[in-house]
Amino acid sequence: MSEVVVRVSQGTADQNEERRYQVPVTPGMVVLDAIHYIQAHFAPDLAVRWNCKAAKCGSCSAEVNGKPSLMCKSRLDDFQPGEEIVVYPLRSFPRIKDLVTNVSWNYEVNKKIVPFTPRKNAQWKMYQEDMDRVQEFRKCIECFLCQNVCHVLRNHEKYEQFGGPRFFVRLAGLEMHPLDGADRLPYVKDEAGIGYCNITKCCTEVCPESIHITDNAIIPLKERVVDRYYDPLTKLFRIFSGNNK
């Protein structure tokens, strides 16, 4: 049986140590299997989050050889023979221990979003063609890989002013829901700070659900914000009609 070297970043918020393990490889093995092997044989207290092991729950996000990925989807045979596998926790969130980070900021952002609000007198009839685009957003498994790579958060640390790609996906899903009647554009513009996004598409690239975050969620939301707040004709119309929303 062949073996692979796995280097795991272990430690706490303010201390990091890379430890090296020799792990036997079985066919089809993924990085999460290797981490479990390390737990069972070398480091019983190695902290890692996981649940479904099938890319459906979004728990096992990490940075594998520098690439933000779900460990349950990262196959060992996708690496070069002899290549060492280096596993780090998500770097945009503070580490709790080993591969586990504190992602509670995301849950706080989520609380601020106005939930689904059905239109008055909604007839509960919807057509598939009107729902397809929203169903794409509903595929999100909240792995927070998009939040992790977004440079507005990762490099510029705009945690106070910016919601991040995950929540633009949620907001787009609500705004485009065929029966939703709430208005979230002021929030999208002012509090979620969509203007900070300069559409580098880093989020889209790492999405394990292949959601077209930039093209289908962020850009349409930006367009709606522009139409309302920055379109000169609409602005003139508003001034004369007295509707200054």
């Binding site: 706490t12 737990q39 019983p44 207290d45 190695l46 902290a47 890692v48 709790i96 221990k97 586990v100």
Partner: peptide, 12 residues
């Protein structure tokens, strides 16, 4: 027997 601290310790 469990080794390590009580902090996020799956063995425990």
């Amino acid at each position: 027997r469990v080794t390590g601290s009580r902090m996020y310790n799956p063995g425990w």
